[in-house]
Structure formats: C-alpha cells, structure tokens
C-alpha cells in the first residue's frame, strides 16, 4: 500500500510539478478499489488533486514568507518554487464600470443567445489610424493563496499564457524565483508556471460575486 502511495505521489509530482499532501492522498486511495490499475489511479488522483483546495491537497513544504505583504519592501526575490492557487482575478486595464456594463449586456442575452445587439457604428471610416497602439488582452491582477492559506496579490507584469478573465478560479500556479515588489508578486512567463485545475466552489462564488465585487471596488475608490 505504501509503495502504491509513493508511486502515485511520484507520478503526480512529475506530471504537475507539485508535491501532494501524503495524508490527503492516503485518504483518497483508501476510497479506491485495490484492484484498480496504477495508471487509472494516477488519472483519478490527478483530477482530484487539481480540483481540490490547495491547502488540503498540496504538501506544506514551501510557503510564502509571512511578511510578504509588506509594502515597505521595495523589491525581493522568492527563493525556490512555491505553489499557489488563484482565488480571484481582475482586469485593471479597464474601468470597473465598463466591465459591469459588459457583464450586464451578457445578462440581457446580448451576444450569447443570438439576439440582435444594437450595433455600434464607427463614424470615421477613412484615414489610417494614427492613434497609438494600445496593448490588447488586458493587465490582470490576481489574488493568490499558498498551501498555508497566506494570501498575496500577483500582477501580470508580462502577459502569461492562460491568465485571463476566463481562467478557472482554483487554478494552480508555481512561482519560481518570482520577484515581489511592495508586497505584490510580479507574474511573468519566466517565473510563472501554470499547472491548471479548478476548484468548483470558489469558481462559482467568484463568478456570482463578480459584479458586486466590481461595484464595491468603485465605491471604495479613494478610500
């Protein structure tokens, strides 16, 4: 049994880059029939592993430092690899109001149910645009949580593939030698590994609260 545990644990680590919590894995395996072939076990374990809250399923070996949120620290580097999960995401390149309007347009069924949308008409049809190119795809700010439950904001310094408003909440990331500036982790392709996964409960809650959160954000401006 214990050799089976190690085998599954090793395979999980090699496929996700994360160390599973032995206790959690043990409990999971006891619910499986002993006759289940190893590969099927690994498949099941991997799915559960990524769908589970990080504080339960991932081994507590590397955590964020306890003073990570300190805004006095101008810049520092996080040693090694630290597993975190996404608790929320916002696009700070667009006004919250603009995002609320977009959400409401979807609620009304525009754009999703094949109803006709009031098309906006561009007035200037001529002339090449001499306007400055604006970065597309947004700039994201993420709320992250480590295995011990410490929370920190992450800022997408350079576009990281997979980070978008459409990503799953509860998705696991590995921060590797990441830089923290004024209490916020800088996310860039070179220091951020996207593992994947989704925690249904927090994903649903985030989605439901998104509009209210945006409104709250507007109200709390300047405070």
């Amino acid at each position: 049994m214990s050799s089976q545990l190690s085998q599954v644990a090793d395979q999980l680590t090699s496929s996700t880059g994360l160390q599973p919590n032995r206790q959690w894995l043990q409990t999971l395996l006891t619910t499986q029939r002993s006759s289940t072939p190893l590969q099927a076990l690994v498949q099941t374990a991997r799915f559960r592993f990524l769908a589970c809250d990080i504080t339960e399923s991932v081994a507590r070996d590397a955590c964020l430092p306890s003073d990570i949120n300190d805004p006095q620290v101008k810049e520092r580097k996080l040693r090694g690899r630290i597993a975190v999960q996404v608790m929320g995401i916002e696009d700070i390149s667009k006004s919250r109001w603009e995002q609320i309007e977009a959400l409401e347009a979807i609620e009304r069924g525009e754009g999703t149910k094949g109803r006709e949308i009031i098309r906006v008409a561009a007035t200037d049809d001529s002339a090449e645009s001499t306007a400055a190119p604006v970065l597309k795809g947004g700039v994201h700010k993420l709320l992250l949580q480590d295995v011990a439950g410490n929370r920190v904001y992450g800022l997408e310094l350079k576009p990281v593939e997979g980070i978008s408003l459409g990503m799953s909440i509860g998705c696991k990331l590995i921060l590797s030698e990441a830089v923290v500036a004024r209490g916020i982790v800088m996310l860039a392709p070179s220091t951020t590994i996207l593992v994947g996964g989704k925690v249904e409960g927090i994903h649903k809650a985030w989605k439901q609260n998104r509009k209210a959160d945006l409104r709250k954000g507007i109200e709390e401006q300047g405070r």
């Binding site: 805004p71 700070i92 390149s93 667009k94 919250r96 604006v134 970065l135 700039v139 700010k141 004024r182």
Partner: peptide, 11 residues
Amino acid sequence: WRRHRLFDRAA
C-alpha cells in the same frame, strides 16, 4: 505608455 492607463494605483 503602452499600457495606456491602469485602474490600480499600487500597480
């Protein structure tokens, strides 16, 4: 700025 503007002062 290429990012044009952000709605988060800390960032």
